[in-house]
């Protein structure tokens, strides 16, 4: 359990609903509902019972629940058996388990993320402070 918390220090519980822009450093496990935009260099795990309606830019995205929106992952996107996804995705690697249901445009490969078309003013800024009361983990000085 402690190891799981280190990988996903942020958890949005099944009875929680979040609307807005969210950024974090390490990982988020989503069990509830989230609507808006997510920016992170870390990992996003959308659990089976979760509903996500957002544009996401992350290091890695694991989908088990319902997702609507455009996804960009610098590393990989994994769709598990129970995943339901609608939107356009762009990632270096894609892993789809049998049973996943999705529709949308797929661009996958080592060049897919690098050659991404430039976004307008909405380009996410990783250094921007978090919105919605969830602050990114601050690096601790090594003692």
């Amino acid at each position: 359990m402690a190891e799981a918390n280190q990988e996903f220090p942020t958890i949005l519980g099944p009875d929680a609903t979040f609307k807005g822009e969210l950024s974090f450093e390490k990982g988020l496990r989503l069990h509830g509902r989230l609507e808006g935009k997510i920016t992170t260099p870390g990992r996003l795990h959308v659990a089976k019972e979760a509903k996500l309606q957002a544009d996401v830019e992350a290091g890695a995205i694991i989908i088990e629940g319902d997702v609507h929106g455009n996804l960009v992952a610098n590393d990989r996107i994994e769709m598990k058996q129970t995943a339901r996804y609608e939107g356009d995705l762009r990632a270096s690697k894609l892993v789809v388990d049998e049973g996943a249901v999705f529709s949308g445009h797929v661009t996958v490969g080592p060049e897919a993320v690098k050659n991404r078309p430039a976004q307008g003013s909405g380009t996410p800024n990783m250094a921007r402070p978090a919105v919605g009361g969830m602050s990114p983990a601050q690096p601790q000085p090594i003692k």
Binding site: R76, K93, E98, V101, F102, S103, V108, G109, A112
Partner: peptide, 19 residues
């Protein structure tokens, strides 16, 4: 109806996967 992709594959196109 069903798609399985191994990590490392290069894909480009419109996908409609489902029953």
């Amino acid at each position: 109806p069903v798609l399985a992709v191994g990590a490392g594959a290069i894909l480009d196109g419109q996908y409609a996967i489902g029953p």
